[in-house]
Design a protein around this nucleic acid. Structure first.
Lengths: 330, 330
DNA sequence: TTGAAAGCGTTACCAG
DNA sequence: CTGGTAACGCTTTCAA
């Protein structure tokens, strides 16, 4: 920029103002400098700007268990939408493991303006780092712990919808394949499903652990397949699509038919759920909207230094009927 | 750091040296300052360091079509290994689309030390940006265009291995489901496969486009399923695992058995390929090693300003036999 | 409307 | 071994 200022024969501060459309500068100077900038291939050094202004344009991004395609899809959405708003993602973490100490510190080292978390949770250390340094945090698909805003799908309601669907489909014995035991997302879905059944005087007869992974779901499916016909549930809710797909695979390998013998429903709406091989009845999470609202919340909080209260937004999921679940008069 | 220097009663430069284990400093001073830093919760501002030293510790990361789990797995590997080496990934792009102009410029704005690309390619503009500004570029799973180093799996040899396997398995009619038409990866695999067959005087009788996607592979599978029995290939090589899995799905839905009626093999070794539902015979790419070598190349080039020649490393894939392909005497 | 100068937190260079 | 100072590229007062 110093180079530009010499080229143009004006002061650095003038260049700075011209480039950011500061009102108090003459039309002519602005045009001249912007033209000069363009042809000389000038690019501002954001790091220097950050040093002086405090704003980096960087968002710390913590991505959950990417083995689950739902998180890949979230990532895709996040980098696209962040870029559209002039922000970049600093990848702090990906995968199922815990966030490491050094990683959490990168938050500070790089002066991120905010932090977007789609993972189980930041380690408590990292969470306290954010709090101490007033770095706003927004969780997506997670309930806020500590101090943070959050946006998620209405997991309880979605699960109720699924239960209602299965009920009207005439199912009698219900099973749940549970997710990772500590995540609010899984817990809410289990609860919503069971509560809705209870209201009709029906209990969930079987609950199996699926750990939110394909392998866990597959194992659960095998257990169910091996039950005596009379005891086997005829409706299974796996709280995540990958698990539901695994359950279907296990059932079919064991010679059972889906949905004729057993209905299976999932939750998430990952791309694979729509494919003919599984044609999963599920609740699709509004990924784009979730990321959009998350970014909204984050950006608002990045502006006003800690004055905004934590907020929690719940977006409706969409029940999508496909052929993995038997339906009324179907 | 200025705060620390006052706290310790020494010059800022001394603090800087103490913190980075500069040899020319007394044991005592170093210990004292490091202790002080720890208890005062001091964290260095990397951005300021970058401004002064020119080194950001940031790697621009361009991720390919993440709809394919192979790329998710690569991402997982990359963020882990980069962190282990003290580097962070700046996510510039993810997905199948082209890299946008503004995104490419972020490379400069944020002073990335180098760039890791696992995607089809940078837009030509972005590539020239890197060249002009001497930002080293390493491609993973891609052949270098322009000026860049690259590490990839030996796609030609892997495909030959698959051809050999199918040949000894007694297959007669061979088909290839092609990938994205412009990627070297797909092309090399197609070539290796066809060349090996040619050497035995056999031609590939059918080539279908699969576009490197599940849907493309599924469509190809359906085409094959609808062929008259006598003309239908009994061995199919889909150049990516997702496509191979899709082919299997399509075949089975049409009532064909895999591998009894048709053998299907893939390439990549994604996690899903190993699951019982598909049990895909494939070549698994050495993901961890690919990322490790890629980072090696990049780091070496980040150090020595443009003096190192472009390098190209080829790592062997591993043929893994599962049950999607009929085998000799099997 | 523009210029000058201070300052952001760090490193590098030159003295001592 | 340590201190001082300039410099990195930009923003932000404060003057003019």
């Amino acid at each position: 920029m110093v180079s530009l200022s010499r080229l143009a024969g004006v002061a650095a501060s003038t260049v700075s103002r011209a480039l950011k459309d500061d009102p108090r500068i003459s039309e002519e100077t602005r045009r001249r400098i912007q033209a000069l900038a363009a042809e000389s291939g000038y690019t501002p050094n954001i790091l220097a700007r950050t040093l002086s202004s405090g704003r980096s344009g960087l968002i710390g991004f913590v991505l959950g268990p990417i083995e689950n395609p739902f998180y890949s899809e979230l990532l895709l959405e996040a980098v696209g939408q962040a870029a559209a708003r002039g922000l970049r993602l600093l990848m702090l973490h990906a995968g199922a493991g815990p966030v490491e100490e050094r990683t959490a510190e990168a938050l500070l080292n790089y002066q991120v303006d905010g932090c977007l978390i789609t993972s189980a949770e930041l380690s408590s250390r990292a969470a306290s780092i954010c709090r101490d340094h007033e770095v706003p945090v927004v969780m997506i698909n997670r309930v806020p712990r500590d101090h943070a805003s959050a946006v998620s799908c209405d997991n309880v309601q979605g699960a109720r919808d699924l239960a209602a669907l299965l009920l009207t489909g005439g199912h009698k014995l219900f099973a749940i394949v549970k997710g990772h035991p500590t995540t609010s997302t899984s817990l809410d879905r289990e609860r919503g499903f069971a509560d809705h059944l209870s209201a009709s005087g029906i209990d969930v007869t079987l609950r199996l652990d699926g750990g939110s992974t394909y392998d866990g779901g597959f194992a659960a499916g095998r257990v169910i397949a091996e039950m005596p016909d009379a005891e086997r549930p005829d409706a299974i809710f796996a709280v995540a699509d990958i698990m539901a797909m695994a359950v279907i695979d296990a059932l079919r390998i064991a010679g059972l038919r889906v949905p004729e013998d057993v209905s299976v429903v999932g939750f998430d709406g990952i791309a694979a759920s729509a494919r003919p091989a599984h044609a999963l009845t599920t609740v699709v999470q509004p990924r784009a909207a979730m990321v959009a609202r998350g970014l909204d919340l984050l950006i608002a909080r990045m502006g006003s230094a800690g004055t905004l209260p934590d907020e929690r937004v719940l977006l409706p999921g969409e029940l999508v009927l496909r052929s993995s679940a038997r339906m009324a008069r179907g």
